[in-house]
Structure formats: structure tokens, C-alpha cells
Design a protein around this nucleic acid. Structure first.
Lengths: 237, 237, 237, 237
DNA sequence: GATGAATGAGTATTCATTCAT
DNA sequence: TATGAATGAATACTCATTCAT
């Protein structure tokens, strides 16, 4: 009987999970296709082949359902990013992989960006950054950490500024690319990677340390960046 | 009589413009405070001290009113930017001024960014880039053009990629700064300006034009000298 | 359990039907009392003791609700007409019964005629003849058919013209009678039946079949005899 | 000065009348094209090239304007009818002319019938028969009167019943003809005229009075009609 | 857990009418 | 007379949420 019960339980759990899944799939489809305002709980229920009331057994309300949908999107994005990035490669390669992945994904599912804006903010709270987004954003941080650990990146790299530039640029670019009805443009990624030049510590540059024989633009750039920063500080006084 | 008539006309026009203005002020306040969904036409009318029906004499519907509010925001932003940027300074300075202005403005009125997303979507079109935003964005382009004309920037600069990085980074940064409840952080601007380094045409590089494109020890040495100087100055404080 | 379930189902169905009925009763009352424009969905809901939203579970919108109300009126009229007309009587009697019934009913519920005009117009189509009205109108046709089958009416009778005269006259008469605040006037029916005289196939005319189609003195004489007889009877009173 | 003033007055009166006319034309067009509910005072004003407020200098409100439009329609119909009917012809011919005219006019402007229903009834009053309609209806009565005066119609003719049959049948026929998208059908008129057979007093029948030689269907019909009436009365007891 | 009927608060929009010029 | 800007009442309809079964 315990076996039977466990079996039943198992089946039931599976059923519940399947139902939960079909709800989320339906909700994602509808939110994406019709927008937050265009979406009705009735339509989601219809597509999930369940009753309207049942939705409320799984999700407190529409806003929460949206939050889960959005959260799942970013969670899935995280999974995909971890796969897309090959940690064994040089950090610069990894950054390129992440940038490419991110840009491509956003372009393909840009609706989700809009939904993300709507999913935050219960009015009153200034903005509620979803934990799943934080996790996704950390993928970038991990690459940087890795780079520093492996001495491929300078410790001087201002992490969060670079992170904002990275994600900010790519999201904005995705938007403008879509406006131009372009699917993907590698130059966006190229341009973005220039930002990291000053902080790259290539084996060559390490090996070449002390040498001045060949041009080392990277080194030069890094120095110039530091210089520039100092000059700015000076100006501010 | 023509004077009297013209005076009347004038008064009339002024009254209408005052009313239009009070509507826009009220609408901006309410949209900003309560969000698009939280805003009712009744509340806007109440705050503008007019009847609900009167709103529709000035604006076709709620969506259009929102669009005008948002459009005005960006138009004002453009005006402010043109003032904030001193075209006589070196381009790099101008970019810094624009970046600082943009970041500060966004932080202070970040609600308008959310409203902007809501104002864009006309149903059917994926996203409708408001003309006023285009105008604002052009401020950046003008600086770049100026820089190229004055030979302060390389013609090789990939305009629209840089533009996307510029605005994308700043908007994203504004969001994260607000999350951290920080009002403004100059390092964001500094970091952003690094991006333009490769395209700067310094006197040095001009002088070097025609010289070997191999490593220039002299250059490195000079820069390192400056750097060490600055670092010393810094330590003294 | 099947019994219990069936009982529950039954109760449920009964409840729904009762609710549907109360909605229709309320709607009929309000439309009749206040006219189409004077009627609000809120008032109908109030009188039916249900929530406003519930109305829309049963009827798509106000126009459709009106159409159902009007349709029911004509359907009920049809039922009543079938009862009022005794198919075993001579056709002329049946026509008299129908005319009397129709005129009486219209006078008592003339508001429904006005509602019928309003229910007809679907925008675009010039006029939409409700199916229920068609059914009602067919009651007349059936009597005529019966009459022809039983050789009480000539096949030469122009069906639809007579039908239009029949219903057109009665409706118009109902209106004028109401204007004069008269409840019912049998002479209206009498006058109308004159129309069918030329198409009656009396025994006499059957007997005459094959005889000369010139004036039949016998016939005239007989009729005049009857007439004088009747006039005498009348005088006696 | 009195001349000048009178001249001005004259011009002004003409202007006013022209304006009044353009208002009515515009109103008629709009009411006809868009229906009562679809019509806005603004649209009428626009088409009449006047300001909205001006409408209220000429007509108390929308309902009254509609009443005037409808009244004018029937007044015009009356004028047309008086022209269409040749009073010198035999009454039967005149009735045929009136019937033909009426049917044709209704078919061409059936929208006005719908407007007429809406123009009556200020809610509360049972129904307000517009004076202009009464005038129009009198055209029929006049023909009958003429017929009786000229001994072409029997005095026994029940005037108002016949009138109701006449107009009721034609209006109803117009509606059904339009439903069948037929423009005009002379058989409708023919059928209607049968009704008057029993009451016709032709010269022949007068001359033939006392004779029984030839068939006189008319006479026969008349007698039968009287008979039938008497029989009915008998039955009612 | 599942259902789906019932709820009823919530609001953008229209337009006849008014009235200050 | 004429204007047309301003009014504000008036309402059909939607849909997230609940709850009796």
C-alpha cells in the first residue's frame, strides 16, 4: 500500500507538475503574444486546458503569474548562458560568447524584456529586481572573476561599471537592431569588447613585460585609461 | 478695434495655452506618481481644474496624452542637453558633459523611462520610436560629427554602435544606481568614456602620423612619466 | 451517486434556467417601460437580482438581449396564435380568429412593436427580419394553405400580398386604436376580411362550376333573401 | 433709412431662411444616413457650415430637430401626393395613383419611416401623432369624400377602417418589398384596390339598377359584404 | 484539488447642451 | 445673432478574483 500510495503520489506529483508547466507555457505564450494588458486569465486557462479558478491554486494572482513567467525566462537564459560560454577558453572569448548569446536571445525574445519591466514594481516599492535576473547577471561576473583568477584580466577592472555597460549596451542594441529589423550584427559585439581592452592581460603582454620592442596597444590602452581616470579626478577639483 | 480684437485673440490664445499647459503638468504628475494603469483621466482633469470632457478637446485619448507627455519630456531633455554641452570644448569634454547630464536627468526622473516604454507601443507595430527621442539621440551624433570635423575623433568611429553603448549603458546604470539608492556616480561616466579612447586623435598621434606603426617607446615613456607624476600628486592628498 | 449527481445537475440546470428566465422577465419589463434608450443594463440586473456582469454571461450585449426579448415575444405570440385558431373551423373563421387575436395582442403589448423595430437593425443590413417573426407570420400562410387544400379558398389568392395587407392593416389599426384610446374594435377585423371575399370558394360557387359565368339571378335572389331576413332580425332587437 | 432697414431686414430674413434650410437639409441627410443614434449635433452643424451652438438658436434640441425633419418629410409627401393625384379622374383611378405614389415614396425613403417612429413619443405621452402626418393621411380621406360626393363610392364605406388598411398595407408592403430588394410591385396596389370593390358605385351599376341580366360582381360583392357584417354581429351574440 | 458561475468594482469616452464673448 | 470652448452626466462592458459545489 505504501508502494501504491507512493506510486499514486508520484503520479499525482507528476500530474501537478505537468499542469504547472502547461500553465506557465500558456501564460508565456499569451503574455508574449498579447502583452500584459491584452492577456486575460481566462485565455491563459483556456490554453492550459484548465478552469480559471485553478490558476489561482497555482498562482496568487495575475501579477505573480507574470513574475513567475519572467523569472523563468531569466532562469532559462542563465542555463543557456552557462552552456553557451566555454569556461576553458580565454576570457575574451568567453565574453564574446556571452555577448553574442545575450544579444541573440534578446533579439529573439525581446517581448520578454517588456514583460520584465512590467513584472517588477508593485507600485510603491521603487523597483523590485527579480532574483532570477540577478543570477543571470552573475554569469558575467563569474567570467570576470575567472579572468582575474587566471590573470587574463586586470584586477583594476571596475566590475559593476563594466557590467552595466555590457548589459546596458546589448539591451539597447537589441532594441535598435529590431527597429531596423536586423536579426543580428556581430559588430555590436566587437565594439563592446573594445571596452575590455585596457584590462586584458594577455600572456604576450606578461611575457613582454619590460619589453618595448613591439607595439603593445593593449598595454598602452590600459595605461592611458588609468591616466585618463586620474586626469578626470584632477579636473573635478 | 483691431487692437482690441487682437488683444482678445491674444488673451484667448494665452488662456488656451495655459490650459494646455496645466493639462500636461497634471498629466505628467499623475502618470509619474501613479503609473499608466493607476492614472485615470478623471484625476488628471481634477488636477488640471477642468472637466473630464475638456481633456478630449486637447488630446484624442489617454494613450495620446501619454505620448505627448513623454514626447515633451524628451524634448525638454534635448533642450537641457544643448545647454549642458559646451560645443567649444574638446569633444571628449562634451561627451562627458552629455553623459553626466543624461545620467543625472535619468536618475532624477527615471519614472519617465518606464512611461516611455508604455508610450511607444502602438498596437501592431512592434515598437514606435518617438520622434522626440530621435531628436534627443541626435545630440550625441552631433558631438561626434563635431569631433570628426575638428579632427578630434577618428572617422573610423562606428557611430551607431557607440551611440547604443552610450545611451544603453547610461540608462542601465541609472537603473542600477537607483536600485542602490545612489544619486550619481561619476565613475560610470569615466568608465563609459574609455570606449572612445581608441578613436581619439591626440596631437601625439597626429605628430606620429607617418611614423612607424610599431611600438613607440618614446610615447610609452612619456605617458608613463605623466602617470607617475599624477600618481604622486594623488598620494599627496 | 449517479442519481445524486443527476439530481445536482438537475438542480443546477433548473437554477440556470430560472436565472435566465428572471433576466428575460426583467429585461422585458424594463425595455417595455423605459424604452431601449431609457433602459440600462444596471437596472435590468437590479430587477433580476443578479450582478451586472452576470448579464453578460447570458447575453453578449444589450442589443442581443433586446433581440432575445423581442424574439421571445414573437415566439409566444406564435404559440398563442396556434391555440387561438381552431383549424377545424372554416378558413374564414380561422382568419377572423387570427386577426382578432393579433389585433388584441398588439393593442395590449404595442410597446413590443416599437422594440421590434429597434431589434431589427444590425448596422449595415437595412433591416433584419427576425426568424421568430417569420415563424409567426407563417401562421397566416398555414391557414391559407389549409383553406386551399380544403377548397375553401381559391388557388388564385395572391399569398404574400394578402399577408402584407393582413398584418400591415392590423398593425396600423392597432396604432390608431391606441391613439384613440380604444381597446379593441371588431369592425377592423370585419373590414379586413372583406379582402378575402373574392377568393372564397363557397358551395354555391362550386355548384355553379361548369354553369354559365354570367350573372346568376338565383344566387343574387338567395342572398337578398338572407339579407332581408337578417335585417328583420336586427330590427327586432 | 426705413428703406435701408427694410432692405437689410429682407436680406437678413433671406439669410436666415437659407440657414434654416441648410440646417434642415443637413439634418435630414445625417439622420437618414446614420440613424438617430448615429447622428450628432456636431455633424449636422458641420454639414450646415454653422457652429454647433447656432443649431440651438433654430431648434430647441435634437429631438425637436428630428421632429421638424420628419414633419417636413410628411409635408413634402403631402405636396407630392396632391400633385400625383388627378382629382378629375374617377375615384378608383385616384386611389390607385395615391397608392402607387405612397408605395413608391416609402420604398425610396424608407429610412424616414424609422425616423418617424423615433420622432413621436416623448416618453410618457403614449404617442404623439405629428400634425403633418395627419395632413398627409387626409389626402386619402379627401379622395373618398370626393368619391362619395360624386356618387362613385358608397356612403357605406367605413372610412377610417379603410384608411388604416390602405396605409397599413402599403407601409408593410414597402418594408417587405425592400427586404426582397424589389423596387416596386404593381400587384400590391392592385390587390389593395380590391378592397374598395364593394363600395364602388359605377355609372354602369347605377344604370343597371334593377337589372339582373348581366353579372354584376360589384353589386354582389357589396351585398355580400353587408351580409357578412350582419352575420358577424349575429355571431357575437 | 478542480471547477466555472457569479461577482461588481472600475473607467474611458461621447455628446447634447450651455454660455461667456 | 453667432460662436465653439467647456461641460459633466451617463453607461456599457471587462475581467481579475472568489467561493459554493
Amino acid at each position: 500500500m505504501s508502494a501504491s500510495s507512493s506510486h499514486t503520489k508520484n503520479t499525482q506529483r507528476e500530474r501537478l507538475e505537468a499542469k504547472e508547466q502547461s500553465i506557465l507555457t500558456a501564460a508565456t505564450d499569451v503574455f508574449t503574444a498579447l502583452g500584459v494588458d491584452g492577456t486575460t486569465m481566462a485565455e491563459i486557462a483556456r490554453r492550459a486546458h484548465i478552469a480559471e479558478g485553478t490558476l489561482y491554486l497555482y498562482h496568487k494572482n495575475k501579477q505573480d503569474l507574470l513574475a513567475v513567467v519572467v523569472g523563468n525566462f531569466w532562469a532559462d537564459l542563465t542555463k543557456g548562458a552557462l552552456i553557451a560560454v566555454d569556461a576553458s577558453l580565454p576570457v575574451k572569448q568567453q565574453l564574446k560568447q556571452l555577448a553574442t548569446y545575450h544579444l541573440t536571445a534578446l533579439i529573439q525574445q525581446f517581448d520578454m524584456v517588456g514583460l520584465t519591466y512590467r513584472a517588477r514594481l508593485r507600485h510603491g516599492e521603487p523597483e523590485y529586481q527579480l532574483p532570477k535576473i540577478r543570477e543571470y547577471v552573475r554569469v558575467f561576473d563569474q567570467i570576470i572573476e575567472r579572468g582575474i583568477n587566471r590573470s587574463q584580466l586586470s584586477e583594476a577592472l571596475p566590475l559593476w561599471q563594466c557590467r552595466d555597460v555590457f548589459y546596458g549596451s546589448l539591451e539597447y542594441s537589441a532594441r535598435t537592431l529590431l527597429l531596423r529589423e536586423v536579426q543580428f550584427d556581430p559588430t555590436v559585439v566587437e565594439q563592446l569588447l573594445v571596452m575590455f581592452k585596457p584590462y586584458e592581460v594577455t600572456e604576450t603582454s606578461v611575457a613582454k613585460a619590460g619589453l618595448t620592442n613591439t607595439s603593445d596597444d593593449t598595454r598602452l590602452a590600459r595605461i592611458e585609461a588609468q591616466l585618463s581616470l586620474l586626469l578626470k579626478e584632477k579636473e573635478q577639483r
